[in-house]
Design a protein around this nucleic acid. Structure first.
Lengths: 200, 200
DNA sequence: ATAATATTTAACCAAATGGTTGAACTTTAT
DNA sequence: ATAAAGTTCAACCATTTGGTTAAATATTAT
């Protein structure tokens, strides 16, 4: 396996891979150990229990995933550019880790509290700047009225949903992985056009 | 429990409830039996194995879920009315069964083949009528060009994604169940407006 | 060098879990 | 009425699985 990295790092990488793929209930400690190329007892030596290991990995994944997404929202950019960059970055990220959203939503439903406690607080106020921007653009007549809530959930929906529905999409449209990703690449341009038209 | 329905029906209802809530890996046969108020051996008597039971339930859920969604698409309605009815019906359905999409997408990723084989075939050609409609509306200048693929995935994204992200939405915006459903009720009107503006 | 500490492993363990069995009980057919 | 078939259940079984242990090995401190 990976030889030059610490055991703990091996565990993190292996656990992340297995948990994201199979979820908490579907993952096996032995499988994680095999994936890391170490003895199963090491998992308990470093993380005590499966739940603790999962919790640690889940938080790490979320912590690495969310900042990139909300970063652009506070940038000092005109609305259209902001949408373009947001979509570009979000879809770009998901192309590298297409299974992350399902992982997060899936396990969040099983334990909504801890996520809200640890991540929820950070997010409050993060939409203020965008909110002001939407109000200002409406005032000068560039866009019609739309609430930040609605704006954000529509934008995120358009970017993320296809990845959640990837297997279904590929099944119905009989599309290969390549074709799916090509489709998403096109969406980097079509979503901003769609969004801007929708609020104009 | 329910006294006047057959054992098999009790099993179906209980298994559906538990599987949708916990997934294949997270569900326990004993829990299903308890939920149905019957002996665990009955599950095997009627369905042989956990996998068989799950497969049966999964197919039933999908088979009951998808027709309602695609039915409207072939209706003989002007585009705007079609969008309105589609959104209305889809969100209405999801308000009754908010966990279904996550269940389907989640377990479909674990076994994409069987879904594609059993359901995928049915879907082919189902978008033809809508496709013609989009082309015609474009020809007469009511809308700009948009492919059926793009149109459909955008429409479905806007309807379904909020239910997938429900726990996250409620966490970030600190919203109760009531508030979430009120928000979705509003979306029955705002999504068609958003869609029509986006493609006009 | 060597004692102390940290890391790693193979072998084990107890609980959980999917699945089976044989007997009891009900329903249906004759 | 009664034999046959279908249904239900408590007790059991084998395997899987998360977790432990005690000894071995490597690392660090003195």
């Amino acid at each position: 396996m990976k030889k030059d990295i610490s055991t703990e790092e091996k565990i993190k990488q292996a656990a992340s891979k297995v948990f994201v793929k199979k979820g908490l209930a579907g993952a096996r400690m032995q499988e994680i150990a095999d994936e890391a190329g170490i003895n199963k007892a090491m998992l308990h030596y470093y993380y005590r229990s499966k739940d603790k290991l999962f919790h640690s990995i889940f938080m790490e994944v979320v912590k690495e995933f969310t900042p990139k997404i909300i970063g652009v929202l506070n940038a000092d950019l005109p609305l259209q550019k902001k949408i373009e960059r947001y979509v570009e970055e979000y879809i770009g990220m998901l192309k590298n880790d297409p299974a992350i959203p399902l992982f997060i939503f899936n396990e969040m439903k099983n334990n909504p509290k801890e996520f809200i406690e640890k991540v929820g607080i950070v997010e409050s106020g993060v939409l203020d700047k965008l909110n002001d921007q939407l109000i200002e653009e409406k005032r000068v007549g560039n866009i019609r009225f739309i609430s930040v809530h609605e704006f954000m959930i529509n934008l995120v929906s358009l970017c993320v949903f296809p990845f959640l529905a990837k297997p279904m999409f590929q099944g119905i449209f009989n599309a290969s992985d390549d074709e799916f990703y090509k489709f998403m690449e096109m969406r980097k341009k079509s979503i901003p056009v769609f969004m801007m038209a929708a609020i104009s």
